[in-house]
Design a protein around this nucleic acid. Sequence first.
DNA 1: GATGGTATCGATACCGGTATCGATACCAGT
DNA 2: ACTGGTATCGATACCGGTATCGATACCATC
Lengths: 336, 336
Amino acid sequence: MILDEKKRTTLADVAVAAGVSKMTASRALRGAGDVSKAKADRVRQAAKEIGYVGNHLASSLSGKRSDLIGVVVPSVENIVFAEVLAGIADGIEGSDLQPVFGVTDYDLDKEYDVVRNMLSWKPAGIIVTGLDQSDATKRILENADVPVVQIMDVDGIPVDACVGLSHFTAGKEMAEALLKMGRKRFAYVGCGLDRDTRAAKRLSGFQAALSENGLAFVATRIGRARSTVKAGRDLSAEVLASHPGLDCIYYSNDDLAVGGAYHCIANGVAVPDELVLAGFNGLDLVDSLPIRIATTRTPRREIGRAAAEIVLNSNHGGGVGTERRKQFHPAIDIGV
Amino acid sequence: MILDEKKRTTLADVAVAAGVSKMTASRALRGAGDVSKAKADRVRQAAKEIGYVGNHLASSLSGKRSDLIGVVVPSVENIVFAEVLAGIADGIEGSDLQPVFGVTDYDLDKEYDVVRNMLSWKPAGIIVTGLDQSDATKRILENADVPVVQIMDVDGIPVDACVGLSHFTAGKEMAEALLKMGRKRFAYVGCGLDRDTRAAKRLSGFQAALSENGLAFVATRIGRARSTVKAGRDLSAEVLASHPGLDCIYYSNDDLAVGGAYHCIANGVAVPDELVLAGFNGLDLVDSLPIRIATTRTPRREIGRAAAEIVLNSNHGGGVGTERRKQFHPAIDIGV
DNA sequence: GATGGTATCGATACCGGTATCGATACCAGT
DNA sequence: ACTGGTATCGATACCGGTATCGATACCATC
């Protein structure tokens, strides 16, 4: 069987078909200069006819960078990061960049491995979650000669560029808003704070606002499990049982807060009159909840898109013009 | 400044440091045979000392396949696919494969482009959602000489391998369970059925069971928007207003069903006594809902993991031994 | 001692593109 | 006619690994 050769068509095939050299074909297809319009058209035509698809591996190896864009997130199950991914997908739409992702499980050593591994693809850019990597990770990022965008957080010094919001401020502003509503007896419910440094920053911002007003948390419940609706429901039940008279619970995020809402609905706790629940993120499922809870609306998708655009610009125009620090100022929704 | 050379260390550096040839170093680091234990140790030692990290692009270009595993999903915002991604991440853990993802937005043409583009990375495998790609897409998948795993669905003929469940059966079994509860006046609420063929399969399974029992949907509401909690809430309100006396609503998925639940809670509709709500997927947020709704619990994470393992096996052992069709039989949760 | 087999290693040719630089042609200016 | 500049193209050397195959050494067997 001589027919049905499995071999993919290569640039050389295109060149032969168009009657030019490989180099000219390469230039024509990339839109690089130094090709006459006539030949460029012939090349494009030939490529289309024989169904040529470039080999990304070859061009990436040869060229300075690849068409891959590395995305490092702590978890993909968390809808927040899924939405960030969606934003990134939006941002690179039409640019033939492709996202590769790595998951760290909030583990700094794993993060180092993932980043290191990612860099060996010579990505066009790398987007990592948070500003608080280990020193070793930051070092390889700095030396990598690749645009680095740290996302979600801006409370700190970025390696290169960062896009996100101040979690300290977010926590503080939420506390101030709740204080203005007249709330006085606060509890805090959170999960995984030792690993999620952004949640910890929100907490300290919240606490700062409380102590400025001579207050402090009446109760604190920090779970070690993942942040889930179920965990929120359980922890809320515990804290409400052990500390009667609370008038507000601040959660480390919406998932937990929704769990709290479920508990209140099931047990007839009047929300928000008797008790105000406050989360963080402004997820879809919060909006349609039969009761209203407070939350900070984070622009997840926009953050992803902005990060992708920074990478794009860095590759396109040399990256000098781009903003190195893009801070969003999320709105607070008090829940009526 | 001669120091601080940006150049990454390469395999040649390792070879020199270990006093062997590039080829021997390559073999030692990969664990390929034909290397004495003494030299292999020396190479590994040298690699560690100079901090060598292999260049994936070069090895991928040279080798038969890359260390990339392509994942094509219709959407990443949908928590269902995010969980599948998490399962894939689980499955490839420890295998130095990295997932690249492409998003199709349920668009067949875009799917073709994404798949085609993905294949040009010579991935170690490609995981695509669903069995119902366009003919052109199926053709390039067949000819690609790459393990292909189609996920979520098994109602049809896979290109290569598939992992998932029968959506027709899932719909049918749910209907049968609800009929057994004595429900008689059914409504259907769904979104995006024209593009989500699996939801459409569930619907026809459900209808098949109904007509076997001499019944049919009293009302049907098909939205064109994305499946969101909000859409579910709105559509539920509509259908309940226009068709009083319904005793069960089947939704195309849990997101919509949760929206329905929110509507019922807010409007005092007794669930499940007066009205049973049935969704699909068994999401986290359904479990902790203050009222109980019916759902089919799909093993999303397991599907992802199984798909990754099929790819892994195909690369490892030649892939002959692996199962080509893995069907899960999801449990139905009737919601008390 | 000749022969055959196995274990170990390295030289060389790729993989499929891109960067670089020199060659050629054509035009304007003097 | 000669020089200089620009536009266009191609030959060649990589990019950093892996596949292939031949060379060498060492041992057992006859």
